[in-house]
């Protein structure tokens, strides 16, 4: 890996160099009722719009690769049948300016199932392959348990990764495009002092976590505790509203809706991201529901993320960003749920 350092004011120049492309980054969305700032990712038009000191965004960046709603195909009726038209809805590369490690790792996990498996999803791949990602280090927040999930640092899946060393940035470079780009700003090889500072900062970060999930033997424990009362406890609270899946950077399941235009000459097929917590998620055509209770659906969610996915890919489908718990009005958080299933309360 190649490392560099550059002075903080160079970042604006880097931005300007990339500004010929569409740039997405963290922006301030006002304050919550306790006057704490709220952040989200959005398209930015000016470097000053970027809120690079952001705490976690409310929503994950997944909509830029996996929109909540996407037209999959359209149909035109012809005199002897119909024609199908597929548009992958990807036209331009996107620069992601300032993505935290958890969200980068989330994309890596999505890649496993959407890009690297049988039948890769081209709608996703087209967008994903056309992302230029600048990662940014962060400080642990109360809801973060990424360290438990092994996703507190990103080893791949970005072009550049910046760590704030005070008056300069320490840069990891993973792509030739990124290397070329950095040659256009004032950049230096890191000194021994920079190395020490980097280690000191990352070391300090690893000590800052307050939330954690005990993952040892979790796949087995989830199997053993399939009938645990804990699921009913959380199921009673669960609103089956899908908020956790919508804010989750790794949830990808979806439903499809077909519509016919009023003129009966055109039709379309739209995909919407769904959630396995939704009441009709496991309902089949005849009407039978395989998971009729909110407890059974909530349990399935944890099963898929922390057992099934681990079996298939040897890592959980969770980056420990804690957004689901932060957004859950019923205050259902993975650390609490898993601890209670393990019987640790």
């Amino acid at each position: 890996m190649i490392f560099k350092v550059f002075k903080k004011q160079e970042l604006a120049r880097l931005y300007e160099l990339l500004a010929v492309n569409i740039i997405v980054g963290p922006v301030n969305r006002g304050n919550d009722r306790n006057s704490n700032p709220l952040y989200d990712f959005d398209v930015v038009y000016d470097f000053d719009e970027l809120a690079l000191d952001y705490t976690q965004t409310m929503h994950s960046p997944k909509r830029f690769v996996l929109p909540y709603q996407e037209t999959l195909s359209s149909f035109v009726m012809t005199h002897d049948g119909w024609e199908k038209h597929v548009d992958l809805n990807v036209y331009k590369p996107l620069v992601f300016f300032g993505m935290h490690a958890c969200d980068i790792n989330a994309l890596n996990k999505l890649d496993l199932v959407l890009a690297q498996s049988t039948y890769p999803n081209p709608y996703y791949m087209g967008k994903r392959k056309n992302l230029f990602i600048i990662g940014l280090d962060c400080d642990p927040e109360p809801q973060c348990f990424c360290r438990s999930m092994g996703t507190d640092s990103a080893v791949h899946g970005f072009d550049l990764f910046l760590t704030d060393l005070g008056n300069k940035y320490f840069v990891e470079i993973l792509s030739a495009t990124a290397f070329d780009l950095l040659s256009q700003i004032s950049c230096k090889d890191p000194s021994a002092k920079d190395h020490a500072l980097y280690k000191q900062i990352t070391g300090k970060k690893s000590k800052g976590y307050t939330a954690a999930v005990e993952t040892s033997d979790l796949t087995k424990i989830l199997d053993l505790e399939f009938e645990s009362k804990a699921w009913d406890y959380w199921g009673d609270k669960c609103l089956s509203c899908g908020t956790c899946a919508n804010v989750c950077p790794t949830c990808y399941c979806y439903g499809v809706d077909e519509h016919i235009d009023l003129d009966l000459k055109h039709a379309g097929k739209t995909k919407s991201l769904h959630s396995c917590n939704l009441i009709d998620f496991a309902k089949v055509a005849g009407g039978h529901n395989f998971r009729p209770t909110s407890a059974s659906r909530l349990k399935y969610r944890y099963y898929h993320k922390h057992r099934g996915f681990v079996e298939a890919f040897e890592e959980p489908l969770c980056v420990g960003c804690g957004r689901c718990g932060a957004a859950c009005l019923a205050d259902i958080t993975p650390p609490a749920v898993i601890a209670s299933v393990r019987g640790e309360e």
Binding site: R33, L239, G242, N246, L278, I279
Partner: peptide, 28 residues
Amino acid sequence: PEYPVCMECKANENICLFELGEPCLGPV
């Protein structure tokens, strides 16, 4: 749709109104 408004609200990337101090029946 059988699911509650929250689902569509989140898909619009709205800020949860409870965060803003407003009551809301979206979850039900």
